[in-house]
């Protein structure tokens, strides 16, 4: 069975919901884009709804992420390939942008994501997200 266009659009919107939730300071909304056992790997690994929510709630005070406040995600090049029924691999690229008062918008990081998404009760959610920064050669 191949993914329908509805599935592909919903998965693309899952990325948008993830971006908007984290960028607007909505930890509950961000955690809700993951499965119950979902994991996020952005240098540190956070697994399960309880850890994901605690991590997101702690971001405003987390010094490791101070440089990214405020910022927003800007994604592109979404590719989705079904791996097993109800599960797919999702690849996309992401720029982390930060508006500077009177000085335009700076790009803080460029990265790719290598994710697994899973359909749970009719909704697509992240089973895992792995952030892979683009590094100079």
């Amino acid at each position: 069975m191949t993914l329908s266009w509805h599935d592909k659009l919903e998965i693309r919107e899952l990325v948008a919901r993830y971006d908007h939730a984290i960028d607007s300071g909505d930890p509950e909304g961000w955690a809700a884009t993951f499965t119950e056992d979902g994991s996020w790997n952005g240098g540190v690994v956070v697994s399960g709804q309880a850890e994901l929510l605690a991590f997101a709630r702690g971001l405003p005070a987390n010094p490791a992420f101070a440089a990214f406040r405020p910022s927003f995600h800007f994604f592109a090049n979404v590719l989705v390939e079904e791996t097993t029924p109800g599960e797919a691999r999702l690849l996309c690229d992401n720029l982390m942008l930060q508006p500077r008062a009177g000085a335009g918008v700076a790009a803080l990081t460029a990265a790719g994501y290598d994710d697994i998404v899973r359909r749970v009760d009719g909704r697509w959610l992240f089973a895992s997200r792995r952030w892979r920064p683009v590094k100079p050669s």
Partner: peptide
């Protein structure tokens, strides 16, 4: 408008 940080110049 998206929230902005002060620019280095300002």
């Amino acid at each position: 408008a998206a929230a902005a940080v002060p620019s280095p110049a300002s």
